[in-house]
């Protein structure tokens, strides 16, 4: 369980997170949605310890994560930009991650799933954006962590790979993992998520079930429901 109490973060005068109070205890897929600059990535980076909050605390399994790093053994993270050292090969990157997280045991299975067998001996600088993203996914998920944080996982993927990714995430959900996905592709969120967390201007505007959101907004698609939430904000 991840519990967030009164989380504040500012960059100079720009307040990005404004006193967030949240609990992630849902086994399943949560879609973290919101327009650009709403604070989604900052929130995820705070959980991962990449950004240090100005105020508030984050408890992971009941323990404050401040100045800690060992708790990250249980979190798999897929960053938004798949940018790797150009002169290293995929195999070397996987080997590096395996040494950092020795529990890694799913690399081969994921490599096979995304047909990366012939790409792993090439330097990262010579790979296409899509293949880099596939390696990004392999690295994020190969240690079979109970928590997954995926920032725009479908970026650069072809339709077939997106289908494989969806099936993989559904399988992980059924295995009882807690998965947080941020995406701007509403169809992907709608297909995968059972809960939605919608952020706007550093605050939470909606936190609840996908179906409840559609009922509340009287819409039949997530895209329209989110558009309604944004429209209502403009009216306010």
């Amino acid at each position: 369980m991840i519990k967030i109490n009164n989380l504040h973060k500012s960059y100079k005068k720009n307040k990005v997170l404004k006193g967030l109070n949240l609990t992630f205890d849902h086994k399943g897929i949560l879609a973290l949605l919101g327009p650009n600059g709403s604070g989604k990535t900052t929130l995820l980076k705070c959980i991962l310890g990449l950004i240090i909050p100005d105020e508030g605390q984050i408890l992971f399994q009941g323990k404050n994560i401040k100045s800690e790093f060992k708790y990250r053994t249980e979190i798999g993270y897929l960053p938004q930009i798949a940018q790797f050292p150009e002169n290293l090969t995929g195999n070397e990157l996987i080997d590096l991650m395996r040494n950092i997280k020795p529990r890694t045991n799913r690399a081969e299975e994921l490599i096979k799933l995304f047909n990366l067998e012939n790409e792993l001996d090439k330097k990262m600088g010579n790979l296409s954006g899509g293949n880099k993203q596939k390696i990004n996914i392999v690295i994020a998920m190969m240690s079979d962590d109970p928590f997954l944080i995926l920032d725009e996982p479908s970026t650069g993927l072809d339709p077939l790979s997106i289908r494989k990714l969806k099936a993989l995430l559904t399988e992980e959900k059924n295995r009882g993992k807690m998965i947080i996905v941020t995406t701007h592709i509403m169809d992907l969120a709608e297909d995968l998520a059972d809960k939605v967390l919608f952020m706007l201007d550093g605050k939470i505007r909606y936190n609840g079930g996908m179906m409840e959101l559609l009922d509340q907004e009287e819409e039949d698609s997530l895209e329209n429901a989110i558009a309604n939430l944004l429209e209502n904000k403009k009216k306010v």
Binding site: L48, G49, L50, F69, K70, Y71, R72, T73, I75, Y77, P79, I81, Q83, F84, P85, E86, M97, I100, K101, I139
Partner: peptide
């Protein structure tokens, strides 16, 4: 040039 990769490594237990 390593900034993005650094972010990935910082999210690991190290």
């Amino acid at each position: 040039s390593s900034k993005e990769f650094l972010q990935l490594l910082l999210s690991q237990p190290i």
